[in-house]
Design a protein around this nucleic acid. Sequence first.
RNA 1: AGGGGCGUCGUCAAGCGGUAAGACACAGGUUUUUGGUGCCUGCAUGCGUAGGUUCGAAUCCUACCGCCCCUGCCA
Length: 574
Amino acid sequence: MKEQSCETKSAEERVNFIQQQIVDDLQAGKNGGLVHTRFPPEPNGYLHIGHAKSICLNFGLAKTFAGVCNLRFDDTNPSKEDVEYVDSIKEDVKWLGFDWGENEFFASNYFAELHDYAVQLIKMGRAYVCDLTPAEMREYRGTLKEPGRNSPFRERSVAENLDLFARMRAGEFADGTRVLRAKIDMASGNMNMRDPVIYRIAKVPHHRTGTQWCIYPMYDFAHGLSDAIEGITHSICTLEFEDHRPLYDWFIEQLQTPARPRQIEFARLNLSYTVMSKRKLMQLVDENLVSGWDDPRLPTLSGLRRRGYTPASIRNFCERIGLAKRNSMVDVALLEHAVREGLNKEAARYMAVLRPLKVIIENYPEAQVEELDAVNNPEDESMGRRKVPFARELYVEQDDFMEDAPKKFYRLTPGREVRLRYAYYIRCERVEKDENGAVTTLYCTYDPATRGGSSPDGRKVKSTLHWVAAKTAVSAEVRLYDRLFLDPDPAAEKDGASFTTKINPDSLEVLNDCKLEPALAEISAETAVQFERLGYFIVDNKESTPAKPVFNRTVTLRDNWAKKAGNKRLGKRR
RNA sequence: AGGGGCGUCGUCAAGCGGUAAGACACAGGUUUUUGGUGCCUGCAUGCGUAGGUUCGAAUCCUACCGCCCCUGCCA
């Protein structure tokens, strides 16, 4: 052991606790050396970044152990599920970058087998039909501190149970009048073992099996047995299912399934400044607090996609957050870091002015237009260069000019010379204001010797501004997104106030008169770009048109100036 | 008569009896035609608390304390 500690594992080789357990199983010779996982969403909502953690985990495990990962829809409750969701789930998993090949399954495909397993349990005397009402059943169940009582129907004969269950299936009884229960232990400290319901009557058409069934299996019964049917070796789920594990094992043990899957639990992802539960996401959508499941402020995969997050950045994020069993809250700053890191390398740079301020270069020839040379991505030579038109009338950012500038402000101010990126040094000579005293136009002069952005005399300039030539500018709408909630943990509702009261009123700001350099008109809806000095943006995949381009801000660039200035007026959220 | 889990930096997270990795955040510095990027530096004598075992404890033992989950015919 001493020897091993000498060759300590590198960060790359370090494994999380689930990988460790799989390695242990493999070394113990279990499952014939195979690893087979599954990602089992219920098609009753859209996937979010918490699901991404699970997807990356399950598909990742399969990959590292040369195994397989199934996509299985856990569709055992037709009243809540819909094909709309199965379609969106498939799209999202694919987009995230995972391929389940032929391994697309549905728990509903196993309804016949599951039914047979239930019959088998009845024959073994391990399941019975119970006529208690839901209220009665609750009463019989006991409480956390007190044992439950046996149902008066617990000792029905096998023959009677078989008959009743067959008639349940045949549709003879109304919803809620009878259930099939496993006969385990009403006195168990684990509530899940107090004769859990395994089948209920629901005369509801199923999105895949139609009206073929009017009884549907419960999660605990269906899930583990579906795992067994598919030959899953490691069934990864979240912490709240930890005390369902004895039940999971019980069904598999009783029914002596050929495959013996093992359930392992991990802590689900919580992200600061957002909500992750399907119920809460659904509420935001239903109450029109957001524009839909793909609202760019939501942590849904469709929302993140529309916001401009890349699959790679999300996978990267999932890699970095680690895996453990303690409940935790990951700082959304880590997600933002992951997307900036990726986009810094990949995104082409362009110039766009969000809040235009007119600049007139008085000594620049009236009709002249120059094509100036610009680098597409300083991080990646191979992305080449482009031409940007420059002319007498330009727009710069309102934030980049201050008439009475504090000493630390080194952008444009009267009398000061700054650089227009890839263009010239200009000096602000005077300003024009409207009747309210607001600056409307900057009159500047340029130095023709500084073409390209550097001066032959080596003269320094305090800052470099982005700009767009007025004549050739493309007008666009730009949507500035910020975190949806003011509270780092809106779901906690500590003060008793609903999470919906903590929505950030500034989570969306729509700018209608933005000016883009012409090259931006050609950008496709899938291509992330950087607006220099502002952030990363993407064409809105729903509402942008060639006539009226719409860009969404994915994330701002880090901004030390705004941080230091510590105030909004000086351009905090640009 | 309760059962099941979890406590290591502001936030995640390694650590598996040999003397506290890493990331994000934060704070400095430096480079820079993006106040971006990159680079450098700093950031737990401490691992929920208290005892114990040991040459040696975040790791083992005991007792406390704190937090999360469980009483759907949801998953």
